[in-house]
Amino acid sequence: MSRLRIEPTKSNPITRDEVAAYGDAVGDHNPVHFDPAFAKAMGLADTVVHGPLTTAIIVDRLIAQFGADNILNLDVRLRGPVFPGDQLSMTPIDYGEQDRGVEVHNQRGERIATVTTILKGDADG
């Protein structure tokens, strides 16, 4: 099986309503995601988007390209905070023979995540 090719892609800007919907869906109402004063006391510029929502957005952009059944696993290292209003750009990276993924930057050019993934066909070389 030939290797699937990852194309550069972007998310939509993340809205506060989407963050609220995610918090309700997974039951994560940590104030760092909803209370600007709490977030600022932690040294953050604003409330932060849930890490699993950031991950889900990355998963979604890959599913849009390949379909869910072609993605076997995914490992996301979160490198920096994502704030409401941020738009995520994903650039494909080839780490080696079988390790590849995407680097994720916000609209300010800051790296916010590195991702490795195994797609169907990768294990066949």
Partner: peptide
């Protein structure tokens, strides 16, 4: 709700892959 949070054409398919966050799934 997850599909609403993602807001894309593929969101419903994605929601079936990431419906839970283990550390908060039981409270």
């Amino acid at each position: 709700l997850l599909a609403k949070a993602l807001g894309t054409d593929s969101a419903a398919e994605t929601a079936l892959r990431v419906p839970f966050f283990g550390p908060t799934a039981a409270g």
